[in-house]
């Protein structure tokens, strides 16, 4: 690693101030950032750890939604939303491995927007609102392509508000090495319609499968998806699966998510 300092502010205000320094970079749980620092892929002068900011940790309920602090770990989410939003808890409990879940955070995952990460699918399918130190961003506006988001430099995700669906499920088909999603599909049924978000598959990162949403909004059953498919164009091809295979998996996993929801 290049040399840098680590600072541990205790408040969002102090963190924002620290991030205003030249070459400062936010450090969430570090589970993705630290490996990339080891490869010398980033050269920050200071890492601003968000792990000591209590005000961005924890889970609360507010009017049909769960609001999760940006600094809340996957492990804590798995435990704390188990009764209020079980599909989200189940998703969180399958990210990485237990040690990764004890460090990695919701905010860190969404800020990074890895095209194979689980949280982007949950946020997009839930119609979540990403809350930062300056504003609120609808999930539909937040994800802007692989590793790209609406966040401005120095902006910190303080919370994410997930509206609680009537029914939901997330099915991840794991890439066998990294255990990220080769394809992951999050299906959420709300009173006013169904949202389906797909991760792991597209060169553009997480996306909504609107045809499936329309079909499922009329008839929330696996059978309603018969005959629907996602075109392979624009889907990723790599060592672990072709675009055609990913397209196929999207169909299979969406049906399974509907059946499980």
């Amino acid at each position: 690693m290049y040399s840098f300092d680590v600072v541990r502010p205790k408040s969002v205000a102090d963190a924002v101030a620290a991030l205003g320094e030249e070459e400062a970079q936010a450090l969430g749980g570090g589970q993705t950032l630290i490996p990339s620092l080891k490869q010398r892929l980033a050269m920050p002068s200071v890492l601003v750890s968000l792990a000591s900011i209590d005000e961005i940790k924890g889970v609360s309920s507010e009017g049909g939604a769960v609001k999760i602090g940006g600094g809340t770990t996957h492990g804590a989410v798995a435990r704390e939303v188990a009764s209020s939003y079980p599909a989200l808890a189940a998703m969180a409990s399958n990210i990485g491995d237990p040690a990764v879940r004890n460090r990695g955070t919701v905010g860190g995952s969404l800020a990074n927007n890895d095209p194979a990460a689980c949280y982007p699918a949950a946020a997009l399918a839930s119609g979540a609102t990403i809350v930062t130190n300056t504003r609120e961003i609808a999930a539909d506006d937040y994800f802007q392509g692989m590793f790209t988001t609406a966040l401005e430099e120095g902006e910190i995700i303080t919370a994410v508000s997930f509206p609680i669906p009537e029914k939901a499920a997330y099915i991840k088909f794991e890439q066998p090495a990294s255990r990220f999603a080769l394809v992951g599909v999050f299906v959420a049924k709300f009173g006013d319609g169904v949202r389906v978000a797909v991760t792991g598959a597209s060169e553009e990162g997480v996306f909504r499968w609107t045809e499936a949403e329309a079909a499922l909004s009329g008839d929330f059953s696996a059978a309603a998806l018969d005959g629907l498919s996602v075109p392979a164009d624009g889907l990723m091809t790599d060592l672990h699966g072709s675009a055609a295979y990913r397209a196929h998996l999207i169909g299979v996993l969406t049906k399974r998510a509907v059946a499980q929801a």
């Binding site: 680590v6 570090g30 630290i34 750890s49 792990a51 990764v100 004890n102």
Partner: peptide
């Protein structure tokens, strides 16, 4: 996971956490 340690009672990867943290 060859580096797993406990920090404040939680299982974490010692290679993916700074001493300063």
């Amino acid at each position: 996971g060859a580096c797993n340690i406990h920090v404040n009672g939680e299982n974490v990867k010692g290679c993916t956490i700074f001493a300063a943290e």
